Simulated assay, not measured.
Amino acid sequence: MSLEQCYKIYKQMKDFNKGWYIAGGWAIDLYLEKQTRNHHDIEIAIARNDQLYLKEYLHNWTFNKVIKGKLSFWENEYLELPIHEIHGKNDKTNDELEVLLNEIEFNDWKFRRDESITCKLDSFYRVTNKGIPYLSPEIVLLYKVRNTREKDHQDFKNVKDYLSFHKKAWLREAIMIHHPNHEWLEDLI
Rank of each mutant, 00 (worst) to 15 (best):
M1D: 03
M1T: 12
L3P: 00
Q5T: 13
C6Y: 04
Y7L: 11
K8F: 08
Y10V: 06
K11W: 07
M13L: 12
D15K: 08
N17M: 01
N17H: 10
K18H: 11
G19Q: 02
W20G: 04
Y21D: 03
I22F: 09
I22N: 03
I22L: 07
G25Y: 06
A27Q: 04
A27G: 13
A27C: 08
D29E: 12
Y31T: 04
L32P: 07
E33Y: 03
Q35S: 12
Q35T: 14
T36I: 13
T36Q: 06
N38A: 12
H40R: 11
D41L: 08
D41F: 08
D41H: 07
I44S: 01
I46W: 01
I46M: 01
R48T: 12
R48F: 09
Q51P: 02
Y53K: 03
E56W: 04
L58E: 05
N60F: 11
T62G: 02
F63K: 01
F63L: 08
K65I: 11
V66C: 05
V66T: 11
I67W: 10
K68V: 02
K68F: 11
G69V: 12
G69R: 12
G69Q: 09
K70Y: 07
L71Q: 12
F73A: 06
F73I: 10
W74V: 08
E75F: 05
E75K: 13
L79P: 05
L81C: 10
P82H: 07
E85T: 11
I86H: 00
N90S: 08
N94D: 13
D95G: 02
D95S: 12
E96V: 14
L100I: 14
L100M: 07
L101G: 02
E103N: 12
I104F: 04
E105W: 00
F106E: 10
F106Q: 10
N107D: 15
D108I: 14
K110H: 15
F111Y: 15
F111I: 04
R112A: 08
R112L: 14
R112F: 14
R113M: 13
D114F: 01
S116D: 11
S116C: 03
S116T: 15
T118L: 01
C119M: 13
L121K: 11
S123A: 02
F124D: 03
F124I: 05
F124V: 04
Y125K: 15
Y125G: 09
R126N: 14
V127C: 07
V127Y: 08
N129W: 10
N129V: 11
P137T: 09
P137E: 01
V140L: 00
V140T: 15
Y143A: 04
Y143L: 00
K144V: 12
K144R: 05
N147P: 00
N147C: 00
T148H: 04
T148S: 11
R149D: 01
R149A: 10
E150I: 13
D152T: 10
H153V: 00
H153T: 00
Q154C: 00
N158C: 01
N158A: 14
V159T: 11
V159Y: 00
D161E: 15
D161N: 14
L163P: 06
L163C: 09
S164Y: 06
F165K: 13
F165C: 10
K168Q: 13
W170H: 05
W170E: 05
L171M: 08
L171T: 13
R172C: 06
R172S: 14
R172M: 06
M176F: 06
H178Y: 15
P180E: 03
P180S: 02
N181A: 03
N181I: 07
H182V: 09
W184Q: 03
L185P: 05
E186M: 10
